[in-house]
Simulated assay, not measured.
Amino acid sequence: MSTTTLPAQFAELEQWVADWARPTRQERYDMRLSKKYDQLEEFYDAIAPRAEEAIDYLNGRDLTDLADDDARLLQLLYSMILVSYAVNVFMQPRIPDSGAAFFNTTAEPAV
């Protein structure tokens, strides 16, 4: 019997949890930079069609007190948003023409 770490109706997204259900923006960004563009596209193409359904599902939850499986689903959505720029705008993992520039997140949102 397999163990799922997402709500049951999102079980087909389970393969993305290990890489993309990251608790901080910096971890999600670092993961984006570690992947090849085609891997980002594959992740985005898997998550994006389910995004509205996932948002509707999470809107029915108390975001200040999420169960672990719900929190991982939210983290996948956060990663999808971060990856969407690379896939839909930049067409590469890095921000074009940014050279060695970087930014550090000093605070994470409450949710």
Rank of each mutant, 00 (worst) to 15 (best):
R72E: 00
T5E: 10
A21D: 00
K36P: 01
Y85H: 12
I47F: 03
D19Y: 04
R61N: 03
D30E: 15
A18V: 06
S98V: 07
G99P: 08
L73H: 00
D70W: 07
R28P: 06
D97I: 10
R32I: 11
V17Y: 03
S2N: 07
P109L: 02
F43G: 03
E53I: 08
L66C: 08
E12K: 08
K35R: 14
I55Q: 14
Y37I: 06
A86I: 12
R25D: 15
Q39C: 04
A11G: 12
T5S: 15
F102R: 13
L76G: 06
M91K: 14
L74W: 04
V111S: 05
E42M: 12
F10K: 02
S79P: 06
T5V: 09
I95C: 11
E53L: 15
E52D: 13
A86W: 09
W20Y: 10
L73Q: 04
F90N: 11
D56F: 13
E12N: 09
S2T: 05
F43Y: 15
Y37G: 03
L82P: 00
D56S: 15
G99A: 06
I55T: 09
D70Y: 02
L58S: 03
F10A: 11
Q39R: 15
L13S: 01
G60A: 02
D70M: 11
P23N: 08
A18N: 04
A101F: 09
E12I: 08
L40T: 14
Q15G: 08
L33C: 11
E52F: 04
L82Y: 05
Q15M: 07
R61E: 07
L33E: 07
A11R: 15
W20T: 00
D70R: 03
V89G: 09
L76Q: 07
A48P: 00
D65R: 13
A8E: 13
Q92H: 04
K35W: 08
A18H: 07
N88P: 02
A51R: 14
D69S: 07
M1A: 13
R25K: 15
D56V: 14
E52T: 13
Y44A: 09
E52M: 06
A67N: 05
A67C: 07
G60Q: 13
L33Y: 05
K36D: 10
